[in-house]
Computed example of a mutant assay.
Amino acid sequence: MKIKFLTSILAFLFFTHSCDRQKKNADSSKNKVEIKTNTAMPREKNKISILEKSMLEYMETANPSYTRIDVDECTKILNNYVSEISNSKSRDEGMEIVKTTVEKLNKLNEKCNFELIETSEREQIAEILIVESSKKGYNTPEEDITEEWREW
């Protein structure tokens, strides 16, 4: 009788634990889908957001000579670039957009005592500019189209 009673209790505990695990897995799957849905954004916007986050996090740990306003200006320049390059009609027009964007970034970085765009930021920004231009067929993804004007 005791064995039957213990077996029943164990079966009950196993069953309830199993149901809880299935419910948690189902809830977890829902969360994963929601996360994917919430973070779905165009790739270039995501790269710009990652860059912005990195710059702002650095501000929390260091005392750079740039401010939130400078970071906002940098992201504005990059977002404008993405929009302008995607609407451009020719390689010449596209390269003029690249040049203008790089020059704006040069001035902003100079205003920030050359601390806004350092090695990591340089790589991220150059990638955004190069990749977006290459999508239009103006260059290859391996070709650094920023180098001619870049001071960062």
Rank of each mutant, 00 (worst) to 15 (best):
M1K: 09
L6Y: 05
T7M: 03
I9V: 09
I9P: 00
L10Q: 07
L10S: 04
A11R: 12
A11C: 13
F14R: 00
F14W: 02
H17L: 07
S18K: 00
S18H: 06
S18L: 12
C19Y: 12
D20M: 10
R21Y: 10
Q22K: 11
D27L: 08
S28T: 15
S29Y: 15
K30S: 08
K30V: 14
K32N: 09
V33I: 15
I35Y: 02
I35K: 00
I35W: 01
K36R: 10
K36Y: 12
T39Q: 12
P42I: 15
R43E: 13
E44Q: 10
K45W: 04
K47S: 03
I48S: 06
S49W: 14
I50E: 08
E52A: 11
M55D: 08
T61W: 12
A62C: 13
A62Q: 12
A62K: 11
N63A: 11
N63R: 14
P64E: 14
S65Y: 15
R68T: 09
R68W: 13
I69Q: 12
D70T: 02
D72R: 03
D72T: 04
T75M: 06
I77W: 10
L78E: 10
L78Y: 14
N79R: 14
E84D: 06
S86E: 09
S86K: 07
K89E: 11
S90N: 10
R91F: 08
D92I: 15
D92S: 10
G94E: 13
M95S: 01
E96G: 05
I97H: 05
V98P: 04
T100P: 00
T100D: 09
T101F: 01
T101G: 00
E103S: 09
L105R: 09
N106M: 03
N106Q: 13
N106H: 09
N109C: 05
N109W: 02
K111F: 07
K111M: 07
N113R: 03
F114C: 02
E115I: 11
E115D: 07
I117L: 05
I117Y: 04
E121G: 03
R122N: 06
E123L: 14
E123Q: 13
Q124N: 08
Q124T: 12
E127K: 09
L129Y: 01
I130T: 06
V131G: 00
K135A: 09
K136M: 12
N139E: 03
N139W: 03
N139I: 07
D144P: 00
T146R: 06
E148P: 02
W149C: 01
W149E: 05
W149M: 02
W152A: 01
W152Q: 01
